[in-house]
Design a protein around this nucleic acid. Structure first.
Lengths: 211, 211
DNA sequence: ATATTTTTATGAACGTGTTCAATTAATTCA
DNA sequence: TGAATTAATTGAACACGTTCATAAAAATAT
């Protein structure tokens, strides 16, 4: 008794391509709606209506509203990836590190809505099976580039030798903190919104330099 | 024509004290429910039922579910304030700075649910009238203590003289970034969860030290 | 007492994300 | 041409946060 029967009896499964096409169409429609009305301002019912399917069907294509949003941002991330690639062109590892951090911050500060949607909307985080959203996206891909720059900086004795992973994570945390605070507490009288990212990088590089 | 008439005609206003008492009762009841079921897991209807009033009335006492939560945490914050006060006992400004940062991080990492509730649940941020929640609470009160320690460290030439407000904010951002990342991306293989805060502080102090 | 007036309290109603039994569609076997 | 079977799709239903017209309550004025 073969587990998979070659010729099945009932209605055939929708082809992979068909499903992908429909998914793509929903994403396209939803992108426009979200861009206009914001995440909270657009309901799944509206997305469904605009797409021409039922709200229920959306849940066969996406895990939920948040998951739909992830797919929407997925190619918006390519822009961030581009910026990071540009920054990676810098040969000097320490200057590259600075350029990477700068690009990362600049991107998120220029797109606070993306940032909020991705980092600040908490749904049940504890889905054990699937990996955390941010990790799979281009966002933490920055960490790899940072780690490389850190590693090379250590080799060139531009940074004190040490646990390169930890140091990389410290850089990411520092940048994250700047961006997070600037975006989520915009009405606070931050001393220098534009310079904070650069100052953070400078401070961290200074603090991690060899004596 | 006096604006406030001494003896009014209709039903008398509920006394300030009565309203405060009811509010306090709701907070007490809701604290238990939230502690058990979590923020998402408890509905306003349930809170109302457990309190013995209607759901609608809750909205005369609190601005909404989030606002109710704020009141609940308000005295939970006193614990953080205590820790910060303890840390402030340290005389050496640089060691005090380190102790403050450490206490701040330790508190939030020990209470990730508080952190999430306060920093990660975004509702309409753009309420022009009322100040941002975090700013009014004890949370950013830490910034004042940090600023004082930074200022004194600069005077004692333990930190390079400079814009003390900016430097204080960099410290806060660095700490915030560490806590934020550890809490929101717990499944990421962080190299050293426990040491990251201390390392961040060390790095920042090092980077901001006089040459 | 009854009417008036002012405040408080209620509960139905709205739109939300999400689920799931029931329906419809599309195929193969008899 | 019918069953039979399997998958896709729907739409009613649920609990949610929140609002608001309406009802109840509590006082004074007649």
């Amino acid at each position: 008794m073969p587990a998979t029967q070659k010729t099945s009896r009932g209605r055939p499964r929708k082809s992979e391509a068909e499903e992908a096409a429909l998914r793509a169409r929903v994403i396209e429609v939803a992108r426009d709606l979200f861009a206009r009305g914001g995440y909270e301002g657009v309901s799944m019912r509206r997305v469904a209506e605009a797409t021409g399917c039922s709200a229920g069907q959306l849940y066969t294509l996406f895990g939920g509203k948040r998951d739909l949003l992830r797919h929407i941002w997925e190619d918006a991330f390519s822009e961030l990836a581009d910026r990071l690639r540009e920054a990676s062109a810098e040969r000097d590892p320490l200057r590259r590190l600075r350029a990477l951090g700068d690009a990362w911050c600049r991107y998120w500060l220029a797109n606070p809505d993306h940032y909020r949607s991705i980092f600040l909307i908490e749904d049940r985080v504890s889905e054990p099976g699937e990996r955390y959203f941010v990790e799979t996206s281009e966002s933490l891909g920055a960490l790899d580039l940072i780690a490389e720059a850190v590693s090379q900086s250590m080799e060139a004795r531009l940074l004190a030798p040490g646990d390169e992973a930890l140091v990389s994570q410290l850089f990411l945390c520092g940048l994250q903190g700047v961006v997070f605070n600037l975006i989520t507490i915009p009405e606070f009288p931050w001393t220098a919104k534009e310079q904070m990212a650069a100052r953070m990088i400078t401070a961290l590089i200074g603090g991690l330099s060899p004596d």
